[in-house]
């Protein structure tokens, strides 16, 4: 079943992808194809099957709540597209009153 253009717009927004109209059209076709392929799984009755959470029988991994040295601030900021005053710089998120 083909996804509607509203559905594709919603997926693109959730994915944070600024797709052009042509890319949206292509996404509609390709996503619809793969979703059709997923229909195959409906053939299997999984009502009583637990989902896999982990392939090995592991339990919560805990560690002592101790401070340890982390990366130095300049190391953390060296790849930032923009930074100022030792912080990552981003566009304004909260509008002024």
């Amino acid at each position: 079943m083909r996804l509607t253009s509203e559905e594709v717009d919603h997926i693109a927004l959730l994915s944070r992808l600024d797709l052009s109209p042509a890319e949206r059209e292509r996404a509609a076709t390709e996503l619809s194809q793969i979703l059709d392929h997923f229909e195959q799984l409906k053939q299997l009755d999984t009502a009583d099957v637990p989902p896999t959470e982990h392939v090995l029988p592991v339990v919560n991994v805990l560690r002592a709540d101790e401070s340890r040295p982390g990366l130095p601030r300049e190391g953390v900021l060296q790849n930032a597209p923009e930074h100022a005053g030792g912080m990552f710089q981003v566009p304004r998120v909260v509008e002024a009153e």
């Binding site: 799984l41 299997l44 999984t46 099957v49 637990p50 989902p51 896999t52 959470e53 392939v55």
Partner: peptide, 12 residues
């Protein structure tokens, strides 16, 4: 996702 994780159990 949940369905796939159940089928994953069958594969295992």
């Amino acid at each position: 996702y949940l369905k796939a994780q159940k089928v994953r159990t069958l594969i295992r």
